[in-house]
Structures are given as C-alpha cells and as structure tokens.
C-alpha cells in the first residue's frame, strides 16, 4: 500500500490551480497532505484567501484526477490552520510564475506580538519586472484580477504586470 499511496500523492501533486494553471496545488502550498485512511484517499488542502472562489473547483479537480487514476474513494478536507502564506509557494512555483510574466512574492510579513501595525504611506517593495528584469517598478494597485495579486508597472520597459502579493 505504501507504493499505492505514493502514487496517490503523485497524482494529487499534478493537479493545477484553476486561476494560475501554470502552478500545481503543490507548488502553491495549498496541498497540505495526502494520506490513506481505511482504504480511502484523504487529501487536505488549505484556502489561500477565505473568499477564494477556486476552492470548490480545486476539490472537484482533485477528486476527478484521483478517481481517474483508480482511487474510487476520495475525500478532500479543508485545513484552516495555520493560515496559508505566500512563503509556502515552492521555488519551482516561483520560477513558473516568473516565466508566466507574474512577479513572485518576496518574504511574507511576520506577525508581531502587539496590535497589527498600520501602514499609512506607500510601501516600497523591491519587485523585479518579470519581462525585462528591471528593479525600477511601481505599484499601480494593491488589488488585481484575483485576490492574491497586485498590479504593478515597470518604469524601464513600461509594461504592466501582476505580482503575487506577500501575505
């Protein structure tokens, strides 16, 4: 069964994110665990943002792919804790994002012990343009087409691009 389980994990690791299809759920750090309990494959995933509308599709895709690979009994569990962080995106995932023209995130902010600090001024981040590599880029909007991305512009090549924001 150890071999079969490894296969189930390998199958789950091929399932891609519905909104960032260049990344697998494993690359994104959303796939938390694959195990077998009483002959059933149990896959644990965590939402990126609480309102992420792609969660249902991810669950559905995991069930379909595993069933197609010969695992009739699949359960997908949600894990809420610890909360997802962009730090969980793998090196491979970061490379694929950059290749697709999306700037990968830097290190996520660390939670302190006191009240959450307020940010009143513009935040300066060293984000390189995924097209020309210039560090001379600016944030256009902290919000973009999906919850996980900000919109930026490169001052060197003038291209707009998306950036997976640190969380």
């Amino acid at each position: 069964m150890v071999t079969a389980l490894r296969d189930a994990r390998a199958v789950a690791e091929t399932v891609t994110d519905p909104e960032l299809p260049m990344l697998t759920l494993a690359d994104l750090g959303v796939l938390r665990d694959v195990s077998e309990i009483d002959g059933k494959v149990v896959v644990s995933i965590t939402p990126t943002y609480t309102g992420c509308p792609a969660m249902d599709t991810m669950r559905d895709d995991l069930v379909h792919e595993l069933q197609r690979a010969g695992y009739p009994d699949v359960e997908v569990r949600t894990v809420l804790h610890p909360p997802w962080s962009t730090d969980w995106i793998s090196e491979e995932g970061r490379r694929k994002l950059a290749e697709a023209g999306i700037a990968p995130p830097g290190a996520a902010p660390r939670a302190g012990t006191g009240p959450v600090p307020l940010t009143l001024g513009p935040t300066v981040r060293a984000v390189r343009c995924p097209r020309c590599g210039s560090a001379d880029t600016e944030e256009v909007s902290r919000f973009s087409a999906t919850a996980c991305k900000a919109l930026r512009r490169c001052r060197a090549c003038a291209e707009p691009f998306e950036h997976v924001k640190e969380i």
Partner: peptide, 19 residues
C-alpha cells in the same frame, strides 16, 4: 464525464468540509 470544466455544480458546498 468531467464537471471539473465548470465552476458551478461541483457538489462541494460546505466551506468547513473536513474541519
């Protein structure tokens, strides 16, 4: 065959599924 092409009708409706 494959409803995974669609965002609706996946049958997963509980956001606390498995918690």
């Amino acid at each position: 065959e494959n409803s995974s092409r669609w965002a609706f009708g996946t049958g997963f409706e509980d956001p606390l599924s498995g918690v």
